[in-house]
Design a protein around this nucleic acid. Structure first.
Lengths: 140, 140
DNA sequence: TTGTAAAGTAGTAATCGTTATTATTTTTGA
DNA sequence: TCAAAAATAATAACGATTACTACTTTACAA
């Protein structure tokens, strides 16, 4: 039985809380479907639409971000801190990568050079994730 | 009447050539629908499926790249040179941005630090494009 | 508690960008 | 001119996401 938050001022729906927790307790950068399947056993009457609706709500509230559509499915991240991602060409996993993001000063520089107002940057690497790279090294 | 390429060894289909030219002669980073509408007057029996099929083929051949799904539509770029993009929050335009991409040496550094094999990077900025920024400045 | 209005959800239908299918047309190379 | 290969048009199918409606849960005060 999941606990309610201390004072139910926000996220007063149990399912909403469960969705946010599922998102925060994984580094899989899951799809809506993934979250749905993860929670379905504990919430048998959970609806996929509810997952989508709440994921959208979390984004508006700044509690989650979308990584965009990868392989036909939109992927979400409950970690809103500044970091980049790598999509593994071998296994399709999306993993966190620290580094490679342009510094705020760089965004300013690009703004001046381009005439645009650059507000944020998202960086996505392509390559082989650590797990697959290790399997290759092992001769797997 | 569009000219054929000098020796029809590749791209021997007129429509294929027209699609590739349309993609190369714009900096709009168009969707399949955009290309379709652009060419329909000159090729009244052009089919949207043909545009999709050829855009996919150009990617495989390295003649074009996909910028991914932006606002629900996949966008393509006939310019395969190394550059980044900015998506305008105001008007939705996608514009080229030079700078902000991690250097090859940076990719190597991240590879070592992360244990991944980083092969390429794609950078997408969010902000206001030059045109919209100018309109703001003009008090429009 | 009990009532009630607001918020949230389940279940399902609808939407829409993209892909697959198949008969037909175009291109190619002889 | 001919036949095989490639490409296409038109349409159907697909699938992720969104919209809709009746029902349920929540919050909050009497």
């Amino acid at each position: 039985m999941p606990e309610r938050s201390p004072k139910g001022r926000e996220n007063f729906s149990r399912k909403r809380e469960a969705i946010l927790n599922a998102l925060r307790n994984t580094d899989a950068h899951p799809t809506a479907e993934w979250v749905y399947r993860r929670l379905k056993p504990e919430y048998p009457d959970l609806s996929l639409g509810t997952v989508y609706r709440n994921l959208g709500r979390f984004q508006e509230a700044g509690q989650a971000v979308s990584l965009g559509v990868i392989g036909g499915h939109e992927r979400f991240d409950g970690d809103t801190s500044r970091h980049a991602h790598l999509v593994c060409e071998r296994c399709g996993a999306v993993v966190d990568v620290y580094g490679g993001l342009p510094e705020p000063g760089e965004l300013e520089r690009i703004s001046r050079l381009s005439g645009c107002i650059v507000q944020s940057a998202s960086v996505t690497f392509r390559g082989i994730c650590g797990k697959c790279a290790k399997e290759d090294g092992d001769g797997a």
